[in-house]
Design a protein around this nucleic acid. Structure first.
Lengths: 177, 177
DNA sequence: CCATAGGGGTAGGGTTCC
DNA sequence: TGGAACCCTACCCCTATG
């Protein structure tokens, strides 16, 4: 109903293509986070990027034959069991082919902490920040969290407690007192 | 690498549902160990079970009701179905899902249906059946579908069209004109 | 270490708008 | 009718907690 289509601008499309060149296809979230492209894609989600790339590939992959009155016939291809060297990379007209798409992202998994409450990271950040004298107690950590406007509810205190114990048992933390 | 998507078969899904009925949700390891279900789930981990159950719950539950419905499509199996008569292949072999197609659904819009129509399978079956020397056009495919008593409405024609285009762009189909 | 719960990300099928 | 934008689901990985 109130569903308006938001057509892709040239800038957005360029940013997407450049992003794929840099990060490789399939790294939509990375492209979106890259400060180099993010400014152009503020109103796009990683899903949008994926879909747009698919559309680009489709229009580019199809033969641009002007014959439209013709009824195209289709023939099944031999099943593609051999994914040998079939990059299926129908990149939409990329000029710069100097750098292959091979090394897009060395790490396939760099799920950096962002949204979810990364307690571990928070703890270490806190301890690092108030690395005074001979360590900090739990209350100091809580205080630090509060100043950071982080969610510190009743549940959190308990979670922090067990987390600290676990970290100590894992040797990642040292109890000084 | 071995990162190939392994779609859930009907047998696997049935086994999971039956397992949840017997052991309750959250007892994934138990279900996996139960000889009653194990034969069908040899290629699934307890994590897979958990994820699949989550998907099932999402698609079947929350239909406008705040009720977080549990068990999806439970059919009340008082007695163990014991369909163990068809272990056939204990190894995680790749199965060709060509034969089965969507059941004859009279509904015009199966948005809420659980089993989405598998256009791909239908298309390949059609092309394989009318293995024309030069290939087949869309109308031939439609004809084939009609003879199969498959739902061929306006909606289907459109879907088939886009599907064919995408398959061509993916290199899975070849347009021979 | 083993197990479960939940978040997050991509791919693909299918649909809606123009 | 075809293309483009969008939505929904499947599947899998990762982290956190017990």
């Amino acid at each position: 109903m109130g569903n308006q289509k938001q057509k892709w601008t040239q800038d957005e499309e360029d940013a997407l293509i450049a992003g794929v060149e840099k990060h490789g296809p399939g790294k939509w979230k990375n492209i979106l986070k890259d400060p180099q492209f993010a400014p152009f894609l503020t109103s796009r989600s990683n899903i949008d990027l994926k879909d747009k790339w698919r559309n680009l590939s489709v229009s580019n992959g199809a033969q641009g034959s002007k014959e439209k009155s013709r009824v195209p016939k289709l023939k099944a291809l031999p099943a593609p069991p051999a994914p040998t060297a079939t990059p299926q990379n129908a990149a939409p007209a990329l000029q710069n082919a100097a750098s292959d798409v091979t090394p897009p992202d060395a790490s396939q998994n760099d799920q950096d902490a962002k949204n979810p409450p990364r307690y571990n990271a928070m703890i270490f950040e806190a301890l690092s920040a108030l690395k005074d004298s001979n360590g900090s107690d739990m209350n100091a950590i809580i205080k630090f969290m509060e100043q950071k406007n982080l969610q510190v509810n009743q549940n959190f205190r308990r979670a922090l407690s067990t987390k600290l114990r676990r970290l100590v048992s894992q040797g990642k933390l040292e109890k000084v007192i």
